[in-house]
Design a protein around this nucleic acid. Sequence first.
DNA 1: GAGTTTGTTGCAAGCGTATGCACAAACTAT
DNA 2: ATAGTTTGTGCATACGCTTGCAACAAACTC
Lengths: 340, 340
Amino acid sequence: MSQTKMITTKRVTSHEVAQQAGVSQSTVSRVFSRDTRLSKTTSERVMRVAGELGYKPNAIARSLSTQRTQIIGVVASYMTNPFFPVVLEAFTQRLHELGWRVLLFTAGKSNDVDVLLPDVLAYQVDGLIIVTATLSSQMTREVLQRGIPVVLFNRYAPGSGASAVSCANDEGGRMVADELVRAGHTRFAYITGRPDTSTNVDRQKGFLERLAELKVTDCLIEPGDFTYEAGFAAAQRLLTSSRPPDAIFCANDITALGALDAARKLKVSVPNELSVIGFDDIPMGQWAAYDLTTVRQPLEDMIEASIELLLERVENTDLASVLQFLPGTLVRRGSARLSP
Amino acid sequence: MSQTKMITTKRVTSHEVAQQAGVSQSTVSRVFSRDTRLSKTTSERVMRVAGELGYKPNAIARSLSTQRTQIIGVVASYMTNPFFPVVLEAFTQRLHELGWRVLLFTAGKSNDVDVLLPDVLAYQVDGLIIVTATLSSQMTREVLQRGIPVVLFNRYAPGSGASAVSCANDEGGRMVADELVRAGHTRFAYITGRPDTSTNVDRQKGFLERLAELKVTDCLIEPGDFTYEAGFAAAQRLLTSSRPPDAIFCANDITALGALDAARKLKVSVPNELSVIGFDDIPMGQWAAYDLTTVRQPLEDMIEASIELLLERVENTDLASVLQFLPGTLVRRGSARLSP
DNA sequence: GAGTTTGTTGCAAGCGTATGCACAAACTAT
DNA sequence: ATAGTTTGTGCATACGCTTGCAACAAACTC
């Protein structure tokens, strides 16, 4: 069908460079793969000719030949939560610095992760980073069986065979409980994220466990889904109830911002009448309008760890999977009362 | 060096499927490229065997053979401005639906667009979408010379040979001027974005031109850079000056949010004492804390147009480049006074 | 029943690069 | 001078797939 005459396009290949430079194609190839045992003379001549012709090695052909694409697949979505774009940008940037390319996939309403995974695999990615959603265990198995290492970021699935890097979410939840109790709060609430995520489960678990240890039993659980809107609605429900809480821990920052705006709308004074604490430490938390107290995830370290874990396993497929939890730190700002 | 024994990994190729199914390799290939003239019998048998063996066509090999990678390169950065993540997600999603993959590149401090472009090219992308930053004209030329169509999103560079899709920014600026003047404002200000972007230039130009047409000459220009922090600082400077404006037009929404927070901090009542209007219509503008009046970019249409423009040119390299401007719409919310 | 058309499938030549092996030239050591 | 070593380059094949061309059997046509 599309038999358009390709008049202009003239891809320069290593053969042409070789011919112009009076060497063999293999020599050109060796020049570009920095093969040591090449005379400076030829090397330079080839480079010069290549430059003149505008030759760039064809990464696709190289991939086919080396059985390595130097491509990492990244699955990320929910870009309306500012946490993910920042993570994505950092990953892309860092991987690029290390000589890897990023093939981006976004899960969404129409396409589940499991649905788009075959496409990921078709492109022979050397490794896979999953920032949003989780793979079905069946899919994980299929991927790992092909010898493609997987790292889950900010989530984990023990026994799946996938490695994972996550914040120590339970510990974070405990820190928040400590902080709020120490500040003298008595009536607590937790606004959840999506209930099927390890992130939400652990934050909630740590929070409630620590509260129990401190002999606090008065904690409402209000359902949310990690969004601003859910946070707003949940906080509104809580604050207009017969016995409103004086401290709210939110499953993530964006939820907390929603909660803060609900408080503002209801003229509930923060932090005098109400403390709100989030989780993530997204840039917006620092904005004057919010000044959000939160648990900071050690993003840089988490990303660095993820990449290291992944690339190690790209090099050596036999390495066992690893779960890694990095500690968060409480960042005290204006949205939560301080202990006296 | 890395001569690890690949014990587990057994990539299934079309040859193996062919052998198992008792047909030739080409037949297997034809089955997977939906070649019509194949008997149902063989077709189904091949499919069944392929399923059993877990065969997926190797996209890399296919790319090499067809001279088409089905990969679109996307350059995007500044993920802290919520506008871009949303755009990126939409692009990725839509392109995936249409059977294309996205290779993501982020420009940044260390790597300019021009620096990472060679890498983009090495992977033989079939097309290029640039969401952030602009290419140097030299680079654009080099890309286009290779027959790789380029679409600039939300920015343009006339005469570069690259197509572009953008909001009618000047018209948007004019709409804002109209709205603010009609509401009875008299002392205006514009907080700029990065001055070297078409986006900023056009919004400013339209705004000022329309003000001039309406016989308004009193408009301060305060430098910004499309960030919250710059908006906050600029608004603070403006509002604490000897003769503060009563209406501020911001180069984009995130700047406007900063301006609103500055006003809040300085106890300047919005919209009574001050109107603020942004540009983009990011989701956060709807939040209760801001309720931002703004010019909405027709994102869906812009993305659809970009993709159409790009894919057209992937099919037919000879098509001339096109600049396309889609009209924005004023979204009236609470941050700007309404006309009486 | 010979000639023609139609529908299926196989053969084989690429696509652009990497790399083991062979070999010539230039040294080093006897 | 000879044998052994090092250094630099080319040859040829492989990577997994697509696709033009040809082969062939089956189904028609007259």
